[in-house]
Design a protein around this nucleic acid. Structure first.
Length: 427
RNA sequence: GGAGAGGUGUCCGAGUGGUCGAAGGAGGCGGUCUUGAAAACCGUUGAAUCGCAAGAUUCCGGGGGUUCGAAUCCCCCCUUCUCCGCCA
């Protein structure tokens, strides 16, 4: 949520930002509700004051008539307050519902555009491999080497699930450990998080836990959901906290499963492991002072690059356009790895994403800090993918495939894998 | 899952339905004293909302209820601890 106290003064700017993001929210509507709410609060407060004053009068010794009169007055006040409060509740509720839909501001340098083709390529790294044979996609490779079994998973769990088998299991664990070791050198506190979180935490981070368009699995009757990312549990970790400046920044890394409904996502760009209902991910999360957040955002991107450079996977970086940012993000950088089996003859596919959400999530989660003057402000929250394992596996299998059908393992992973090559025999 | 005991401010901890945003400690901050420090003493020390402001309202795990008035009484839920059961 943005700071609602600036709605009136910065109305035009906020509405412009909403339009740049191609969202449908009316600032005027929110302001009208805000004014109604303010009036009602003043009225309720005035009535409550009358009630308190009335009650105070009865602390002393009184005649029966006086006391009876006061009690009658108190009863009437009680009814008036209840009525007014009910009205306030309704206005407040629609005010917040509407206000929460206002997206975060966007970084002035974020490209303005509607969809992912408007994203701005910042740089590329590595060399896109050229094969002297016909490259296979990871689905075919996974089948040939008996590494991934989609068919059995479809029978047991449904479409878009998978069994990892044989060396693919070791590959998953190797990637997790590889990423965690790098994060440790960057001062991150390592965690393995719960895979379930309460709806209020989901909402604080900016996810919509309910509704048909939601990408989140809700657990019926529990008020909880399967997490779509450890960003949720890492952001909830310090909810309702007031830090001192010397405690910040706090860098946390979380390994979790991620569950996503992905309703309606189909087509060749979503095939195989690329878009699935469950995968493992190591996520970075930082609680930062506002003045540090842009710098730390670059830092997170740097760590993501370090991880993919270590894996020797060619990639490009894009600066995400306003229409593709998502409500909480102020700025977002994606790493898109080269995937030779994607599309027709290979394509870039998103493997990481790092966002600076400034104070947007912190306001809902009540994560604050006290500055040296004793004033309280919201912290800035940032997140970034260290490794989304399923997509990293796509990139590795497709980029390191050999003519004989085997897969070479990037040097950085070999110690974790205990092998330098996956073959039909050594799987 | 069953039985019992708790959940109060930064922390510990008291609290009779009205005088309680809340005793008393500890810690923090400021001051007196001191060459400096410690000790002692004095003062101060939560957050949110509405309001131009003065100020007002709200918050004692969360949510309901009783009452003119609730930290205090009742109900539900969450959570922590102890014991029993079950279990990887």
């Amino acid at each position: 949520m943005i700071d609602l106290r600036i709605l009136q003064q910065q109305k035009a700017q906020i509405q412009q930002n909403i339009d740049n993001r191609f969202m449908n929210v009316s600032v005027d509507t929110v302001i009208a509700l805000q004014e109604q709410r303010s009036t009602l609060i003043q009225e309720v407060d005035a009535l409550r004051k009358q009630r308190n004053d009335n009650a105070k009068k009865m602390k002393s010794r009184l005649s029966t008539e006086e006391r009876t009169a006061l009690i009658e007055e108190g009863k009437q006040l009680k009814r008036d307050i209840a009525d007014k409060e009910e009205l306030l509740r309704r206005v407040e509720s629609s005010y917040l519902t509407e206000a929460k839909r206002i997206p975060n501001f966007a970084h002035p340098d974020a490209p303005v555009g509607k969809e992912d083709k408007d994203n701005l390529e910042i740089r590329t790294w590595g060399t896109v491999p050229s094969f002297s044979f016909t490259a296979k996609d990871h689905v075919e490779i996974g089948q040939d080497l008996d590494l991934i079994d989609f068919d059995t998973a479809a029978k047991v769990s449904g479409a878009k699930f998978y069994y990892l088998k044989n060396a693919a299991v070791l590959l998953e664990l190797a990637l997790e450990r590889y990423a965690l070791d790098i994060l440790r050198t960057h001062g991150f506190t390592l965690t393995i998080t719960p895979d379930i979180a309460k709806e209020e935490v989901l909402e604080g981070i900016g996810f919509n836990p309910r509704g048909t368009e939601s990408n989140i699995y809700a657990l019926e009757g529990t008020g909880t959901c399967l997490v779509g990312t450890a960003e949720i549990t890492l952001g909830g970790y310090h909810a309702d906290t007031i830090f001192s400046t010397d405690q910040l920044p706090i860098r946390m890394a979380g390994l979790s499963h991620c569950f996503r409904k992905e309703a309606g996502a189909a087509g060749q760009y979503s095939k195989g492991l690329y878009r699935v209902h469950q995968f493992s991910k190591v996520e970075m999360f930082v609680y930062a002072l506002p003045e540090d957040s842009d710098r730390i955002h670059e830092e997170l991107l740097g760590i993501e690059e370090e991880i993919f450079q270590g894996l020797q996977i060619p990639y490009r970086i894009v600066d995400t356009c306003t229409g593709d940012l998502g409500a909480p993000a102020y700025r977002k950088f994606d790493i898109e790895a080269w995937m030779p089996g994607r599309g027709d003859g290979g394509a870039w596919g998103e493997v990481t994403s790092t966002s600076n959400c400034t104070d947007y999530q912190a306001r809902r989660l009540q994560v604050r800090f006290k500055d040296d003057q004793g004033a309280i402000h919201y912290v800035h929250l940032l997140n970034g993918t260290a490794i989304a394992v399923s997509r990293a596996i796509v990139a590795i299998l497709e980029n390191f495939q050999q003519e004989d059908g085997s897969i070479t393992i990037p040097a950085a992973l070999q110690p974790y894998m205990g092998m330098d090559r996956i073959t039909r025999e050594s799987r």
